[in-house]
Write a protein that binds this DNA or RNA. Structure first.
Length: 597
DNA sequence: GCGATCAGTT
DNA sequence: CACAACTGATCGC
């Protein structure tokens, strides 16, 4: 959850994702996406009053964010003060002090953030340098090199500061399977279930938040159906989402919510109460999208885990993993990094010291960003910008900066040179001709790249087009589930099927390298493990069964990183892959026993 | 009565 | 397991 206080050091007269307290004085507002923790104060009466008296104060966001925001009546008063901006279109904004007339110009560019529909990062360019505010984001390794406006000609722009979504800025969250891999695991699971009979239905236990829409559109496309949701109002101008969701309960895929939906599910009912009209009990499985992370050197990464007779967890993340963040930062190499989220179980001080103290030793070319530009070598500063320091920010920030500089693992000049070389080698390829999104076939990530609305258009149709395609079409599994008479509204209690089992593997392939710099497109890996190294895992199944004893060890390893293992290595017999890891560590003189946090 | 905040839950 | 929102208790205006 964001604890960003709302303002950036470089441009303190604007506020982002916070609209209360000191932010009430700001000359312009920016909303990165429509999640509540980024909208604090946004419906405040004081702010409303201020707008009514102001001629220049506006809220800048993407077109999709504007739609989502205004679909909630509580924010309707913003309508005349919102200036939606296109993605990738630098826009000059005048920041005016309405009492003194003092003025400052700032150029802002919206960049896709991949977090939820309409989510963007803001790139600010002005007298105080280039500053990137990421909001919440999930970009894959290598994505930064494909963002045109982070470059100037063939080189990366100098970035003074990044205000970073540091949700997973912790080596515990080293790796999170890519969206494609997670999506395909879910498609697999859903397909295998609903193809069995029209009475086999799936309940997607999603949180009440934007961000699952691409799941709905991909499922809808793949299975030629619609997903039952509570309301369509927010999507009324987004036909590409709208066409895959419905309030009609007669569908096999549900993402509906009810205050007591878990209880419903235990009672073998969907949250919407839907049952088959002919009295045949529905066979329901629940799939709960949740974040799963993996250690740096972990090979096996099941994206679906069975948690009960008819319950599954499916890997799903709104935020970049540690390695994705590292890739992002080491590519942009900002002078300052301001974490905007304190990862669970950590303090701010810990976060600012993670690169120095907590990060596992990594090869030089993978090392953390060094804020060094060719012109001026500068020590990287990992500094606080969060709420708690709002009032006494200067002193505290100084302290943090000093701490950061004192970091005992601060890289030497020689090391920085090495990094610079390796970074140069991965300069963005053919940037001049490569405009994000255009020459390539539509990728489903484009779903988040949603702003291309022209003034005359009244719908967001075009923005969402080419956004909802399935990355790699699999054979369609039509189920005849569209028969309207099949379902009725009367409540019943069907039995759950316990005999269902999957046969495919959704794990990352063994051949997938650990090289996170690779820009190769993710292959869709839904195959059995090829000659796996892990003796204990002979089954080709996608699904790790949490309850099953012989699988227990495996599933535990999936939700904690190998840097978080509480016991010493010799307390149990290591598996062959663990052994080889240990040998590697020993050979490199690395500590093999890690202290627990 | 409304809204903000916090702790707990999902 | 760690997203983000909802719920309910409490407090203040």
């Amino acid at each position: 959850m964001s604890s960003f206080a709302g303002r950036m050091k470089e441009y303190p007269t604007v506020s982002l994702d916070r609209f209360d307290r000191e932010n009430l004085l700001s000359r312009a507002y920016f909303l990165s996406h429509c999640h509540k923790d980024h909208m604090k104060g946004l419906k405040g009466p004081i702010l409303k009053r201020k707008l009514e008296f102001s001629r220049t104060v506006r809220l800048y966001c993407s077109f999709v964010t504007k739609e989502l925001l205004l679909s909630n009546p509580k924010y309707a008063f913003w309508e005349e003060y919102i200036v939606p901006l296109e993605l990738e279109s630098p826009t000059q904004i005048s920041l005016v002090d309405e009492t003194s007339g003092e003025k400052e110009d700032l150029v802002v560019t919206l960049l896709t953030a991949g977090h939820c529909p309409g989510s963007v990062m803001f790139l600010f360019e002005g007298s105080q340098g280039n500053v990137l505010y990421t909001g919440d984001f999930r970009l894959a390794a290598g994505d930064a090199s494909r963002i045109e406006h982070l470059h100037s000609g063939s080189r990366v722009k100098d970035i003074q500061s990044i205000y970073l979504d540091s949700t997973f800025y912790d080596p515990r969250f080293y790796k999170i399977p890519t969206r494609e891999v997670c999506l395909n695991g879910i498609l697999e699971l859903v397909g295998n279930w609903i193809s069995q009979s029209p009475y086999h239905v799936v309940w997607l236990n999603c949180k009440a938040a934007y961000g699952y829409e691409y799941l709905f559109t991909n499922l809808g496309e793949e299975f030629n159906t619609q997903i039952h949701v509570r309301s369509l109002a927010m999507f009324k101008k987004m036909p590409e989402i709208l066409s895959y969701v419905t309030t009609d309960r007669r569908t096999q895929i549900h993402a509906c919510r009810h205050p007591k939906d878990e209880e419903f599910f235990q009672g073998s009912r969907l949250p919407c109460g839907c049952t088959a009209s002919d009295g045949t009990p529905l066979r329901i499985i629940s799939i709960k999208p949740s974040t799963m992370w993996f250690g740096e050197r972990m090979r096996k990464t099941n994206v679906i885990i069975k948690t009960g007779a008819s319950s599954y967890r499916a890997c799903f993340s709104f935020h970049s993993s540690y390695s994705e963040l590292k890739d992002f930062l080491s590519y942009l190499r900002p002078v300052n990094i301001y974490p905007s989220v304190i990862p669970i179980g950590r303090t701010l001080t810990e976060v600012t010291q993670i690169p120095q103290k907590t990060a596992p030793p990594v090869p030089v070319e993978e090392s953390l960003p060094l804020a060094v530009t060719d012109a001026q070598p500068v020590a990287r500063n990992f500094v606080d910008c969060t709420e708690s320091n709002d009032e006494e920010e200067d002193e505290d920030q100084q302290e943090e900066e000093e701490n950061a500089e004192k970091g005992d693992t601060k890289l030497t000049k020689e090391e920085t040179g090495a990094i610079k070389e390796s970074e140069r080698n991965k300069e963005p390829e053919k940037k001049d001709t490569e405009v994000p999104g255009s020459p390539n076939p539509p990728k489903w990530e484009d779903f988040f790249t949603t702003d291309t609305l022209t003034d005359s258009q009244n719908s967001l149709n075009s923005q969402l087009q080419s956004c909802c395609s399935v990355p790699s079409p699999a054979p369609s599994r039509l189920t005849g589930s569209q028969t309207p008479e099949l379902f009725s509204d009367e409540g019943e209690t069907p039995d759950n099927d316990e005999n269902f089992s999957l046969t495919l593997s959704a794990s990352l392939s063994n051949h997938s390298s650990q090289n996170l710099d690779s820009c190769l497109p993710d292959t869709l890996i839904l195959q059995p493990e090829q000659g796996g190294r892990e003796q204990g895992d002979k089954r080709p199944s996608t699904v790790a069964q949490e309850e099953s004893n012989d699988q227990k060890e495996l599933s535990e390893s999936q939700v904690s990183s190998d840097y978080d293992i509480p016991c010493t290595p010799e307390s149990k017999t290591p598996r062959p892959d663990e052994l080889s890891q240990l040998y590697r560590k020993l050979a490199s003189g690395e500590d093999v026993i890690r202290k627990r946090d």
